[in-house]
């Protein structure tokens, strides 16, 4: 059942993004930024974690999940290490994503050239 929810949720988020992209003169950069900040806002009341519980991995794929993970990292860092944790914990949950993106991008530059 989570498969169907994943399809609907992830598709719905992309649909909203596409509607914003078509009807305003925002660039894709604006849209991803809006979604990241929105994910953080939804994380304040742990609302996004509830969505992830119901929907499954389909809710981890949109970039909103990135904002939510940043907020969770900072908050749980505070619970563990106090004030220092606010700074040191913020990148912990997303470091796998950022590091893998950088590493794979670097590897790709060794093998491929830009296509015109």
């Amino acid at each position: 059942m989570t498969l169907v929810y994943s399809f609907l949720f992830c598709g719905f988020i992309c649909l909203i993004g596409q509607i914003i992209l078509d009807n305003t003169n925002f660039t894709p950069g604006h849209i991803t930024t809006i979604f990241v900040v929105l994910g953080s806002v939804l994380g304040v009341c742990s609302f996004y974690d509830k969505i992830v519980k119901v929907v499954g991995a389909g809710a981890n794929i949109p970039i909103m999940s990135f904002g939510n993970l940043l907020l969770n990292g900072s908050y749980s860092g505070y619970l563990e290490d106090g004030l220092l944790g606010l700074f040191s914990g913020i990148l912990v949950p997303v470091s796998a994503g950022i590091v893998s993106a950088i590493v794979f991008a670097f590897i790709m530059t060794l093998f491929f050239k830009a296509q015109d």
Binding site: L3, L15, G56, I61
Partner: peptide, 27 residues
């Protein structure tokens, strides 16, 4: 004039498929 309806449908389909595959892969 870009075909807004078609764009929206394409985005929905592709995003949904990615979410579907992600959940299947996770399981």
């Amino acid at each position: 004039k870009e075909k807004k309806l078609k764009n929206a449908f394409n985005a929905f389909l592709m995003g949904g498929t990615l979410g579907f595959i992600a959940d299947g892969l996770k399981c």
